[in-house]
């Protein structure tokens, strides 16, 4: 199974392929559309990630040493970004998720295209994922 680093590298290479903003965003939108929606009963307010401009729900559970993530968002671009993060962090050792570097987002060129508020939302999601991982790793 691919490590976090390897999965990040795959994403970076995927995005290197796009020159145009439209292609990049179309790809993010496609990722959003292909992410399974959270079942209604899991879309509870206490799973909402604070600090995002759109609603983002994040659910995490322990799977042995690993952590499983499920997420959803009401805005499709936010959902695409969440899908990307799940792609990287899902079913990885909790310890490694907690310690992981998230510089790959910058390499994808995503951070350039995100305003500070939106970037903060993105950081909030990553923080929340790491927070769960840390709790499970303990």
């Amino acid at each position: 199974m691919a490590t976090i680093k390897e999965r990040q590298q795959v994403l970076i290479e995927e995005f290197e392929f796009f020159d145009e903003w439209m292609d990049k965003y179309n790809h993010i939108i496609e990722m959003g559309k292909s992410l399974d929606a959270l079942p209604k009963e899991k879309k509870k307010d206490d799973l909402l990630v604070q600090g995002c401009q759109s609603k983002v729900w994040l659910h995490a559970e322990k799977n042995g040493d690993n952590v499983l993530f499920q997420a959803d968002a009401d805005a499709i671009i936010a959902k695409g970004i969440v899908a990307m993060l799940i792609d990287v962090f899902n079913d990885q050792p909790a310890k490694e998720v907690a310690a992981a570097d998230h510089g790959f987002l910058e390499e994808i060129g995503l951070k350039d295209h995100l305003s500070p508020t939106r970037a903060n939302g993105l950081m909030s999601i990553i923080k929340q994922m790491k927070f769960y991982a840390l709790a499970f790793a303990g």
């Binding site: 439209m22 499709i76 671009i77 295209h113």
Partner: peptide, 13 residues
């Protein structure tokens, strides 16, 4: 069929 946040991001682009 669209979310205002998505519209805002793509307009900014």
């Amino acid at each position: 069929g669209t979310h205002p946040y998505d519209l805002g991001v793509l307009l900014d682009q």
